[in-house]
Each structure stands twice: as structure tokens, then as C-alpha cells.
Amino acid sequence: MEAIQNKKKLSIAIQNKTAKQLTDSVKDLRIVSLGKTGVGKSQTGNTIIRDPNAFQTQRSSASVTTKCQSATETVNSRTIKYIDTPGFFDTHGSEEQLRSEILRSIIKCAPGPHAFLILLKVQTYTVQEEEIVKKIIETFGKDALKYAVVLFTHGDNLDEGQTIKEFVRENSKLQDLVNKCGGRCHVVDNKYWNQQEDGYRSNRVQIESLMNTIKEMVRGNGGGCYTNEMLQEVHRAIDNEMQVVRAASNGKQSKEQIRAEAEERVHTRFIVRLAGVATGVLLGALLGVTHLLCFIIKKMIKSDSFTGFAKIAAAAVLPGAKVYVGVTAAAMVTGAVVAGAVRGAQIAYDAVEGEQTVLGAIKKAAQACLEKEQFFFHPHC
């Protein structure tokens, strides 16, 4: 028994040593900030990379960061790349612009970030904050929380002598979020705590603690960054574009310039593809419903009862599903919308291959969907 326990201890020690070596070998640490407008992502970035002018800031409820930005600095012999993203529910710009910049943040952190910082203010945890967290998970995936730290700003709002963990415990939903992030949470105050050097209410102390937490988190994750199929695809696309740009530059561009141009090319290509797919989804949904209505009219003429009609229509929209007499028209339309949208996305994705502009992608996607409209609902007129 003792021999088995010693063997287990040795195995754990080897794993810990390997993880530490992997962590220490990570020279480029990529950190992505996520949060709503006005939470202080840019100011926090300036604090972390120790450059007060790296990101433009102002004390306002309006968003200063409208485009995804990044800044790199060497801190304690480690290169830290901080990616500052526009706020979710941004006060300026359209949803399309926000999606474009979120895509840009994905490109800038490829092949993946080592840490996500979910920034929240020390204040009441509202439904809006909950929605932001949901949006983060929708964008990057549920597993992203294994690489996340909740960082609170406006720490001076804490009660006298109160710690951030005590503040979190007062709200079960907030505690649940922190638990999903492995219990990792810290606090800063970019207005009042910059001048203090010692004690809990000091940005220097808190940032050191935050970086130690990130280091331990990276170690716990095997020394690697967070990645998924999307990030890997982006990374491959950037590598391919870098080869093209490097060949065309004839040695006249630096590695950083080549990377920047490659990232911009990939961003443009993906935005064009997204525009085409979005067009396909919308047209596909519309055409799916159109063909469903056509089918309904024909079957209603021939059917003696709503029950018979419901079974026929439901079977057409949801093949193989159990059919109940209570099937509603809304459910059938939803089925047609989903089926049409998926088909439209597939057609558009193929149609816009090689297109260089958003307008061109929209036109090609629309043309392709209209040419193949008979495929959006099989029992067509």
C-alpha cells in the first residue's frame, strides 16, 4: 500500500513539475478583456501592462473602445499581450459592428488566449450583467470559463474592510459565476488605488495577485492556451496569409507588420463570409416559410379535418418526430424557418467562396438562394 501511495506521489510531482516547466516556457501571455461598456477594460489594460497611455480612456458611460485593440509589453521577463475589446451592449455602433470587432478580438488572440478577464463593477449584479456573461459563453464556448478570471473594478465601492470574496458571497448568482471560473476573482480600482503601495487597496498588490492567479491557472491547464475549432481555423488562416504577405514583401516588412497585415486580411475574409451566410440565413428562413404556406394551402383543400392537416404538415416539417393533435401553426412555421435558415446558410457559404467584398458576398448569396429556392421545403408547389 505504501509503495502504491509513493508511486502516486511521484506521479503527481512529475505532473506538477511538467506543468510548471510548460508555464515557465510560455513567454507570450495573451489576455482578453471582456465586459460591458464603461466597466474599465482599457484602464485596467493600462494598469496591467504598466503603460498609462497604451489605451485611450475617459470617465464616461459612453464607450471609448469602438474597435478591438491590443498592446504588448514585457513585464518581469514575460511578454504580455492585452486585447481590449469593445463592450458588450456597446453604446455606440450597430450589432454588426460589434460582431465584427469581437471577430477581430478572436483573430488577435489566435491561436487562443491564456486568460479571459471577465470585468464587472463592484455594484449590484443585474440581469444585464447576467446577459453579458451568457454572451461571452455563446461567443467563446462554455469551456472558456476554465481559462477565466472575474476581475472587479471600482474596488473603492467595497465597504470598509470588506474583501472582494466577501462581496461575491452576498449574491448567489455572482458566486455561481465565480465558482464556474474556478473560484478566481480579484479587484482593482483604477481611480483611487494607483498611489497606494501596500495593503489590500493597492493596484500594485492586486495586479501582482492577479498575475499569480493567471500563472497558476495556466499551470493547471497544462501550460497551454484556450483554443477550440474556431480559434484553430483562424490560426491556420493567419499562418497561410502570413506566408503570402511575407513572400510579397521581399523582406521589406517586419514580422509584426506581416502579422498585422495577415490579421487584417483574415478579418476581411471572415466578415465577407459572415455577410454572405447571414444573407443566406435570412433568405432561407423566408423561403422556407413561403414553401410551407404553399404546402399548407394545398393540403387544407384536400384535408377533411385540422387533425389530419396537422399530422401531414408536422410530418413534413419535422420528419420522424412524434405528432400530437395539439401541434400548432407556430411550431410548424418555426420548423420551416429553422430548416430554411440552415439550408440557406449552407448554400450561401459555398456561393461566396473567394468573394472580396461584403456587398459582393450579399449579392452572390442572395442569387444562389433564389436560384435554389425549391430546395428550401421539399413538399413544394
Rank of each mutant, 00 (worst) to 15 (best):
M1C: 08
M1F: 11
I4K: 15
K7Y: 11
K8F: 14
L10N: 06
Q15K: 14
K17D: 11
T18W: 07
T18Q: 13
S25R: 11
V26I: 15
S33V: 13
L34R: 09
G35S: 10
T47G: 01
I48S: 07
I49K: 03
R50S: 06
N53I: 14
T57I: 13
S63N: 13
Q69P: 01
V75F: 09
T85I: 07
F89Y: 12
E101R: 05
E101V: 15
K121A: 02
T124C: 03
T124W: 06
E131Y: 15
E131R: 09
K134M: 04
E138G: 01
D143V: 03
A144H: 11
A144W: 14
L145E: 09
Y147T: 04
Y147G: 00
F152I: 02
Q162N: 03
K165S: 04
F167L: 08
E170L: 05
N171I: 08
Q175P: 02
D176R: 10
R184W: 05
C185G: 08
H186S: 02
V187R: 02
V188I: 04
W193A: 00
Q196R: 02
D198V: 06
S202A: 01
I207V: 12
L210K: 02
L210Q: 01
I214F: 07
G224L: 14
E233P: 00
D239R: 08
Q243H: 11
Q257L: 14
A260D: 14
A262N: 03
V266M: 07
R273C: 04
L274P: 00
V277N: 02
A278T: 12
A278F: 08
G280Y: 14
L283S: 01
I296M: 11
K298Q: 08
K298H: 15
K302R: 12
K311H: 14
A313W: 11
A314E: 07
A315K: 13
A316C: 10
V317K: 14
K322S: 13
Y324S: 04
G326E: 13
A329C: 12
A329N: 02
G335W: 08
V338S: 07
G340M: 04
A341D: 08
A345H: 05
I347Y: 11
Y349P: 00
V352F: 08
E353L: 05
A361N: 10
A361R: 07
K363V: 09
E373T: 12
Q374M: 09
F376N: 00
F376H: 00
C381L: 02
